[in-house]
C-alpha cells in the first residue's frame, strides 16, 4: 500500500534502481558474449589464423577450421546462451512477458 508521499518516492527510486540493474546485467552479458563472438571469428579465424594453423584438429589446420566451421558453431551457441540468460534475467526482474 502506498500511504504517503514518502512511500511513493521510495517506490519510484526502487523501480529506477531495478531498471538500471536490469540494464547493467544486460550490458554485461552483451560484452561477454560479443567478446567471445569477436575472438572466435576475427581473432582465431583472421588475426591469429597463421599461428593457429600450426596446430591441427583432425585433418583441419586449426585457424582454417575456425574460419570455415568453428566460428559458425560458436555463433549459434552464443545466441541460444543469450536467450537463456535473458529469459532468466527477465524473470528475476519481473519483465517476463507471461
Amino acid at each position: 500500500m502506498i500511504a504517503t508521499f514518502g512511500d511513493l518516492v521510495e517506490v519510484f527510486v526502487d523501480t529506477e534502481n531495478q531498471r538500471l540493474a536490469y540494464w547493467r546485467s544486460n550490458l554485461t552479458y552483451l560484452i561477454v558474449l560479443l567478446t567471445i563472438w569477436f575472438v572466435v571469428s576475427y581473432g582465431f579465424g583472421i588475426l591469429l589464423v597463421d599461428e593457429l594453423n600450426q596446430f591441427s584438429l583432425g585433418g583441419f589446420p586449426l585457424g582454417f577450421w575456425f574460419a570455415q566451421q568453428g566460428a559458425i558453431y560458436v555463433f549459434v551457441a552464443l545466441i541460444f546462451i543469450y536467450v537463456q540468460l535473458m529469459n532468466q534475467l527477465d524473470r528475476k526482474y519481473g519483465h517476463s512477458e507471461d
Binding site: 552483451l30 558474449l33 560479443l34 563472438w37 571469428s41 579465424g45 589464423v49 582454417f64 574460419a67 570455415q68 566460428a71 559458425i72 555463433f75 552464443l78 545466441i79 543469450y82 536467450v83 535473458m86
Partner: peptide, 23 residues
C-alpha cells in the same frame, strides 16, 4: 581460405541481430 569472409560474414551478423537489434 579467402572464401571464409562469406561464411563468417553471412552468419556472424545474426549474433549482432539477436543481441543488439531484434529484441
Amino acid at each position: 581460405y579467402d572464401g571464409s569472409v562469406y561464411l563468417m560474414g553471412w552468419t556472424g551478423g545474426y549474433v549482432l541481430l539477436a543481441l543488439l537489434l531484434a529484441p
